[in-house]
Write a protein that binds this DNA or RNA. Structure first.
Lengths: 148, 148
DNA sequence: GTCAATATGACAAGTATAATGTCATTATGA
DNA sequence: TCATAATGACATTATACTTGTCATATTGAC
């Protein structure tokens, strides 16, 4: 039974992700943000100003693509470059005021959505789900890592 | 707190899915299956023989792409067509013996992996996680649906 | 039975989200 | 100092789809 539930849980990850992405996308309508720009802004908002390779490491996608994402985001005026004292070739990406306002607003609206989505689920159950999903993800990552 | 946990849970969906996909892919090495062929076989194994449009509906992807998936799977000898009495233009896809053996074996190996991944998590917690994830997915789908 | 609406397979093209490869330049660190 | 690594920029390729179109076959309402 346990393995069966686990299998089902894991195969829910795709529908969950797709539903989540659809909501995120819907939430961006009206702003001039794209989903990938939002991802950049979220990293800067959450972990502070940082370089492109640092963002790439956090998002676990290749730096070359994050570079594109960041360039776009910068062209749209949501982030700006600052000199990096620790690494002259790699400027630090920082939120502009506009970027900060936008991402705070988006996250805030997403949190409002979370309240609706939370519905009748208890905080305890959600916390349990989070803990399980994290453990399973870590475990799967390790399994896959060993195989390669 | 609840909304915060929920937000985190939802944003775990991508890492979870990616880790899961990596494991599934690793499990297919040695078989002549691809991930998308595996998906076709799983649907046939789980829900019985059915037409391409039916599989597409279950996978929630466009029938044109499922057609490609099924054609590949058929060319590789894992499924075969049978006449469809209910719809002459649309043959029923059915597992061949080889296909049945392969998918049973894959699923069985995945279940073994589930035992390892389950680790010290209780069945109760996993069941809770599954219930929460399903509820959240349904809720998000509805939200996104209303917006579009 | 007729006939408009629909379903299906086949095929072509496009799109989003990346990965991969390469290069010149610059830092870094032993 | 000098080999090695890091970075941005750019080009190519890959994957997993979606969208659009067409001819034909099928269905269902009347």
């Amino acid at each position: 039974m346990k393995t069966e539930h686990l299998h089902q849980l894991i195969w829910m990850s795709r529908p969950l992700m797709q539903a989540a992405e659809a909501c995120v996308e819907a939430g961006l309508v009206g702003t001039d943000l794209t989903v990938r720009m939002r991802a950049v802004l979220e990293m800067l908002d959450k972990y502070g100003e940082q370089t492109v390779p640092e963002i790439a490491a956090r998002l676990e996608i290749k730096r070359q693509y994050v570079q594109i994402m960041c360039n776009e985001t910068r062209e749209s005026g949501f982030i700006e470059q600052r000199a990096n004292p620790r690494h002259k070739r790699s400027p630090i990406m920082a939120l502009t005021d506009r970027g900060r306002t936008v991402i705070k607003d988006i996250i805030s609206r997403e949190m409002t959505l979370m309240e609706e989505v939370g519905g009748d689920l208890s905080d305890e159950d959600i916390a349990t789900a989070l803990r399980v999903v994290r453990a399973v993800t870590d475990s799967l990552k390790q399994e896959a890592g060993e195989t390669e």
